[in-house]
Design a protein around this nucleic acid. Structure first.
Lengths: 217, 217
DNA sequence: GTCTATAAAAGGATAGAC
DNA sequence: GTCTATCCTTTTATAGAC
């Protein structure tokens, strides 16, 4: 019986932590760092405010943990891509589609990054592991571009970081700014039919640029 | 003497309002809506906190006024473009360059829009004039696209709103997300040489897509 | 590890004189 | 229209029992 108790209790610490993180993420995403209320977070967890401070030290500590996990999550997803096995053009398309789908289906992630930018990335900059996290994306993209150029499929001379900037910009903006864009132009960027059209549009735009058709120059 | 006093005093109300708005804009941009402090704003104006409430009613009222003026400012700038006098290709290029330059040189505007999106555009939606403001951009772009297609310069079938989305996405993101992007990839998106390269890149990307070279299909 | 109660400070808003 | 002083609520954070 005591064994059952032990095994039942052990993972509780980790589960409590995960529970707090999940609720905190919602609150931060909805109200921003300053707008988020510690009491509101505590109320919606299984535990109390005291525990929240016990685990994370401060509101900022909790926010940083949320931020760190958000990046860990996207890294995990990206790891499932097997781009090396594909020809360059298909690999590029797949990478763009992945970015589009991930940001479209994780608006919370997008909003969190937007919030962190309001704070000039000061919390992200204090996370020690953050640079290595996203090095993989650039390395993968760099490899695709190199192979594509070697095969003569891609003509454009461009850096992986610049291509990534374009992909991110196009995919991120329509999620991050859908509220003001919708308010101003009276359209709903989250509608399914719009999503598919934009997905195709973004893929074609970026691929077209990287290919660098002679007709454009 | 009383006349001098009168004439010196008359514009003060307007100047005080403008002074408060300017300081408030800085504070909101720097700390977000919830993070901004009314006391901090009042301290940096020529006047007092009481006046701030006298003119704008509440913190939210002040924020809304800041938002409204930001859109009024960009509308004023856009009005100086004479796109109708140019051939479609040149007009499109000029519109893209304008958007790029405006957002690059007005990071405060970009951050304010990002903040408003965190709040799901709820304050923007309450501004009655906001829809008409940006109708002009779409109308101008629509005209360019129609003329381009009539002349056979543009082949791509696409809506003005979609093209605007692409332009905005590319121009906005590199300003709004420069902090997290820089933190993750160790680069400075605000550097002058990077700016010029990206400007050319964005123009060519969008123009290339709108032209819709047969080689891509 | 967890709960109740509370300290300590900040911040939005206003009263009331001039 | 403008200033000083201040109210009152909210909010972060912690003390101390169990």
């Amino acid at each position: 019986m005591s064994v059952a108790k032990e095994t039942a209790r052990k993972p509780d610490a980790e589960r409590t932590r995960a529970d707090i993180l999940s609720v905190a993420r919602q609150e931060f995403v909805e109200h921003g760092l300053s707008g988020a209320r510690v009491d509101a977070i505590a109320e919606r967890t299984r535990t109390t405010k005291r525990m929240l401070y016990y685990y994370f030290g401060s509101k900022e500590g909790l926010y940083s943990a949320v931020l760190e996990q958000a990046y860990a999550d996207i890294r995990t997803s990206e790891a499932t891509l097997a781009l090396e096995d594909l020809d360059p053009l298909t690999a590029l398309r797949r990478l763009i589609e992945f970015t589009f789908d991930y940001e479209d289906s994780h608006p919370d992630f997008v909003r969190l990054i937007a919030i962190e930018n309001v704070h000039q990335a000061q919390y992200l900059n204090r996370l020690p592991t953050i640079q290595s996290v996203n090095a993989n994306v650039i390395a993968a993209l760099d490899s695709i571009l190199a192979r594509g150029r070697a095969e003569g499929v891609f003509v454009r001379a461009c850096s992986a970081v610049d291509v990534h900037l374009m992909i991110s910009g196009l995919c991120f903006y329509r999620v991050s700014n859908r509220h003001t864009f919708g308010a101003i132009f009276g359209c709903d960027l989250s509608a399914p039919e719009v999503r598919e059209r934009h997905k195709a549009m973004i893929v074609e735009t970026v691929v077209g640029w990287v290919i660098g058709s002679a007709a454009l120059r």
